[in-house]
Design a protein around this nucleic acid. Structure first.
Lengths: 241, 241
DNA sequence: ACGCGAGGTGTACGGCGTACACCTATAACG
DNA sequence: CGTTATAGGTGTACGCCGTACACCTCGCGT
């Protein structure tokens, strides 16, 4: 029965778009490590090797997935409104929001051995914000490096665990161990500072920390720009003069 | 031939220390992906399963390797010399030097799901530098976040490729493509700025960029500290006032 | 002298990415 | 309308990976 538009629909032909779409969905649900050529093929009702007709290999699949996610970032407005700093800030936070919808994305991004076209587009847009705002090429270059992974909207906290222990006894034990050997770590964990009535320890607001660091860099860059900083002043010229 | 004390010496008994030592050496030579339980066992002249008598699993092996590398970082002096900023700077750069000797280490660090004791020790030392210098608990907390992976001595450049193409034709082709679609990226690549007579494009000094970003954060934190900043001022209070 | 336990071995399983040969349904064309 | 080329899906297989589990074999304390 050659019924191409069967009610349930003859399984639609695979396309690169469908593959990427389902790969993103699968990674969203199963995490970065839950995504394999085999699980993806299963999800598409197809044999693993079928995927290779649409992506060269898994690396290319990841490239495409990054492309897909980056396409979700709203483009910067043509008209820079309130200066480059605000525009850059908005763009970074926009990117962060897109990446936060796909928690696996930073691992994909970090393992790209070379910038993909979508990544270059993304960088290009950010560079134009700075250069268009009159920041010198040199300072722009260094600022991009300083922003580093923040440009991409993520900061992987080294050693950030999953959910903290919920068992009160266990919490107490951990706290005791900390107090003995790592008192400063313990104090710092209790010193989120924003939102005073937050639950102790767990109350660290990632968005605040991200914005704080971002503003430190943007404000610092702005200050250097305002003073006409040049690299020849030496490395630590930031706030010394 | 049961020659127990063969001239070359009976293969010494495996110890956790020997396992970790050789694991580090292997990763140094073969890279992070070249390290597997099997290749490591080969190197030790032993069957893969023998390793499991000394490390619980591969995750624990990586924990131990991180421990080993972090032990190479010189401890901070008890006497803070020239203020917390200089001390923090020195410690970060010391850490960076240790990590640079083991290029695989950032991947191991980044994939630790929870901080290991050695990592907590490391953080503790840095926190004490700030707190000992009189920085408030809140600002210390945020500064630690802002320093982020820089505390650990690395900043993985997203999309940083290996060696750039050496074939002149290929270079020309890449440059042409960039000029057409990513002119700002191209300009930025040519604008390293430090060391004017560097080869175009390839002359970006990672150490300079690292130090630049580090100083941006440390100087910014210092300025906030000097003015008695508190989180209630709001996120972007950095340089607005 | 003996036995016991720490430490090294062998085999095996299930997962991964993917090379390669094969089949099949479609669409272009004489 | 029949033929045929081909894009796209299939099946099998290989060589890696981490590691569970049963086993053996020393060397040491008794």
């Amino acid at each position: 029965m050659p019924e191409p538009e069967h009610p349930a629909g003859r399984r639609p032909r695979l396309t690169r778009e469908r593959v990427l779409e389902e790969a993103v969905a699968l990674a969203d649900e199963a995490g970065f490590d839950g995504l394999s050529m085999r699980t993806l093929a299963d999800r598409l009702g197809v044999v693993p090797m079928a995927l290779y007709k649409h992506v060269r290999d898994k690396e290319a699949l990841l490239d495409g997935m990054v492309e897909t996610v980056l396409a979700e970032v709203p483009p910067p407005p043509d008209e820079p409104g309130a200066g480059w700093k605000a525009a850059a800030r908005t763009r970074v936070l926009d990117t962060r929001r897109a990446l936060q919808r796909h928690p696996w994305a930073w691992r994909a991004l970090e393992t790209r051995p070379a910038p993909t076209p979508a990544m270059l587009d993304h960088m290009e847009a950010m560079l134009r914000i700075l250069r268009g705002g009159g920041v010198s090429p040199q300072l722009t270059h260094h600022a991009m490096h300083a922003l580093g992974s923040r440009i991409w909207g993520f900061t992987q906290e080294v050693g950030a665990s999953g959910p903290p222990p919920t068992d009160p006894d266990e919490i107490a034990a951990v706290m005791a161990a900390m107090a003995a050997r790592w008192p400063a770590v313990l104090e710092s964990a209790m010193s989120a500072g924003h939102d005073p009535d937050t639950t102790v320890g767990a109350g660290c607001d990632d968005d605040f920390e991200f914005a704080f660091a971002l503003d430190l860099i943007l404000d610092g860059t702005e200050a250097l720009d305002a003073r006409g900083w040049t690299p020849w002043e030496g490395v630590a010229a930031g706030a010394e003069g």
